[in-house]
Write a protein that binds this DNA or RNA. Structure first.
Lengths: 153, 153
DNA sequence: TTTCTGACGCGGATTATCCGCGCATTCGGA
DNA sequence: TCCGAATGCGCGGATAATCCGCGTCAGAAA
């Protein structure tokens, strides 16, 4: 993982829909050298996957809400079970177990408040033994939306 | 945007590193029909981009922190300026302007607490006229991490 | 019914990727 | 110092994927 790899990663995080030739020209390497590096980065898990980023509005999921959760108890089994539930919930894009007053933060994408309400009710019903309370932070504006990581230094 | 398009989007959000043939076989369409649909979805902005998802650990940015911000005032000019700053901050992966007690939520990826502290100091220094207070929610575990949207219904 | 539109499958032309080869550089022991 | 082993490179042919024009067909509108 040298500087060349980092440059490649930086490019592919912005746009992975690019022929090797373009990357090769940008960094002054042959096409096959670039291909070999990319396939190695995929192999060793540095590149986890290549995905399409879809417009929420275009598929009718334009409403983003951050949900802060407090849970009843933090026993191992309870946590595991709840996390599996979250993982299967299609409304939940991302989810973190965090320090502080709240226990979980969810990033939820839904069509509208009605669908959000259905999600919350489903969660409070399915997981009533676990979830104590929740707080909704409705996104009025998504300033930035990516999973891009800086690769420098 | 019919059910076929939705199926394609669902597949490409999980893995866009797939030849058209695979998608075509999965949905029972010819390769060229699939290619035409995909290129149309890119054209009209439904597919915003194709990106590589990189492992934070692999590039030394394994620490994820959610930051809740309260700002001094919500005048248009102030907000715009601050949002431009956030957009340029490489540590900030995502950022939402939200309803409720807090004004912004940032998703930040850094190497360690030291680097996080540097980021916070830089923000509080550069944007001292804007940011009133912040609260850090350190991710002990990332349960789920994607921008994937459900396409059904 | 006729016409128009849009999406389809087919298949050849073009591009891109995969991969083996030989070469240059680097890095550790003898 | 000298000499293998390992690593990464560029080249170029084989393979695979994409691009694109053509003719066809089904559904909507005249």
């Amino acid at each position: 993982m040298d500087q060349t790899d980092r440059t490649i990663l930086s490019m592919l995080q912005k746009n992975a829909d690019v022929p090797g030739k373009v990357v090769a020209d940008a960094i002054g390497l042959s096409v096959s050298a670039v291909e070999r590096r990319i396939s190695k980065l995929k192999q060793d898990g540095t590149i986890e996957k290549i995905v399409a980023v879809v417009s929420g509005k275009a598929v009718g999921r334009g409403l983003t809400i951050l949900v802060e959760l407090e849970i009843q108890n933090e026993h191992r089994h309870t946590l595991d079970q709840f996390q599996r539930w979250l993982d299967r919930a299609s409304e939940v894009q991302s989810c973190w177990y965090v320090t502080g007053d709240v226990d979980f933060v969810l990033l939820v994408a839904v069509r509208d408040l009605d669908e959000y309400n259905q999600f919350i009710e489903r969660m409070m019903n399915d997981q009533q033994a676990i979830v104590r309370k929740y707080k909704s932070l409705i996104a009025l504006k998504t300033v930035k939306r990516s999973l891009e990581l800086p690769t420098d230094r």
